[in-house]
C-alpha cells in the first residue's frame, strides 16, 4: 500500500493534488463530475477587494499543447466570497481550502487577507503577485523583489495562516524573487503562474485575445515550470507548491522530485474536468510501478 499523504505547513493533505486557482472556481462546478473531497485541497478563484468583471472577450486562445487566457481576475469580490461562496463551499467541501488573493496595491492584499484570516475553512493563503492580465498591480509586484517582499510583509502582518506567494515566471531570475518572499516571512512559494503569450488571428490580422496578450499554460509549459520549481525549491527553505502544465500522475511525481511539497493542476481541469480525480487514481499505480512508497522524500 503506497502512502499519498503530504504535509503542507503543518496541515496534512490526503494527497498532493490541488486544482490551481482560476481553473476550479469556488469548487461548485466540479461537483457534478466528482466529489472534491478526494482532492488534497484546492485553491479558489483569485479574489480581490472589489468585484471585477475582468477583461473584454475573447479571453481564450488555443495553442499547441496549451492555451492562453486573459480573464483578468474576474471575481465577485472578497465580501461576496465571504458572504456567499465560502458558506456554499463549506456545505460540500470538508477540508481546509487555499484562499487565493489578488490585488492592485499592498493595502488591497492586506485588506483581503485580514478579512479571510477569520475564516476557519481557509487553511492557507496564496497571494497572487503574478497575474499577467491586469494592468496595474498583479504581476508588477511579482517581477520585483522589493515589491514581492512588501506584499509578503503586509500580508504576514495581518494573518496567522500560512502564506504562500505565487510567483510569475516572466522574470529574469525567479530565485531572487522567491528568496525575497522567504526573507519577508513567506511560509511557502507557489510557482509558476502563466507565461505571457500571444496569438494572432491570420484572417482578421489581429490578436486572438481582445487584451492582445494573455497567460500561456498547459502541457507545453511543464518543462519551464519544472525547471523553475527545481531552482526555487533548492534555494529556499520553505515548502513549494509546484504547478505549470501538470496533466498526469507522472507529471506530479516529476514536480515532487524537483522539490515541490504539493502540486497544483491548472489548465488540465478545463479540458478534462476529471483530470485531478484521474491523477489521484493513477498516482498509486505509477508509484507502485516506480517503487515509490511515499511522496515525502522524493526530492532529487
Amino acid at each position: 500500500m503506497v502512502d499519498l499523504r503530504v504535509d503542507l505547513c503543518g496541515i496534512a493533505l490526503s494527497n498532493p493534488v490541488i486544482p490551481a486557482s482560476g481553473t476550479f472556481g469556488y469548487g461548485n462546478e466540479f461537483r457534478e463530475f466528482y466529489d472534491p473531497n478526494i482532492l488534497g485541497t484546492f485553491s479558489f478563484k483569485g479574489t480581490t477587494r472589489e468585484p471585477r468583471f475582468g477583461n473584454p472577450t475573447p479571453r481564450i486562445a488555443e495553442c499547441t499543447a496549451g492555451m492562453i487566457n486573459a480573464v483578468g481576475l474576474q471575481n465577485p469580490g472578497i465580501d461576496a466570497v465571504l458572504a456567499t461562496e465560502l458558506p456554499r463551499l463549506k456545505t460540500f467541501f470538508h477540508k481546509p481550502v487555499i484562499a487565493n488573493i489578488g490585488g492592485f496595491s499592498v493595502e488591497d492584499y492586506a485588506y483581503c487577507c485580514e478579512k479571510i484570516d477569520a475564516e476557519p475553512c481557509v487553511g492557507w493563503i496564496e497571494v497572487n503577485i503574478s497575474c499577467p492580465n491586469v494592468r496595474h498591480g498583479g504581476m508588477s509586484f511579482g517581477t520585483d523583489p522589493a515589491g514581492a517582499a512588501a506584499v509578503t510583509k503586509a500580508v504576514k502582518a495581518v494573518t496567522t495562516k500560512p502564506v504562500f506567494v505565487k510567483l510569475s515566471p516572466n522574470v529574469t531570475d525567479i530565485v531572487e524573487i522567491a528568496k525575497a518572499c522567504e526573507d519577508a516571512g513567506a511560509d511557502g512559494i507557489s510557482l509558476i503562474n502563466t507565461l505571457l503569450g500571444m496569438r494572432i488571428d491570420l484572417a482578421r490580422r489581429r490578436p486572438v485575445i481582445a487584451n492582445t496578450m494573455g497567460g500561456f499554460s498547459g502541457p507545453a509549459v511543464f518543462p519551464v515550470a519544472l525547471r523553475m520549481v527545481y531552482q526555487v525549491a533548492h534555494a529556499v527553505g520553505v515548502p513549494v507548491m509546484g504547478m505549470g502544465g501538470v496533466s498526469s500522475a507522472r507529471d506530479v511525481l516529476e514536480m515532487l522530485m524537483a522539490g515541490a511539497t504539493a502540486v497544483q493542476v491548472g489548465a488540465a481541469n478545463l479540458v478534462n474536468p476529471c483530470a485531478c480525480r484521474d491523477i489521484i487514481e493513477d498516482l498509486p499505480v505509477e508509484m507502485e510501478r516506480l517503487g515509490i512508497s511515499n511522496l515525502r522524500e522524493l526530492r532529487i
Partner: peptide, 16 residues
C-alpha cells in the same frame, strides 16, 4: 463565445 472549459469554471466567456 470562445470558451475555455464550457462548464463554468474558467470565466473565459463572461458577458455583462
Amino acid at each position: 463565445e470562445r470558451m475555455g472549459c464550457g462548464f463554468g469554471a474558467c470565466m473565459g466567456c463572461s458577458c455583462k
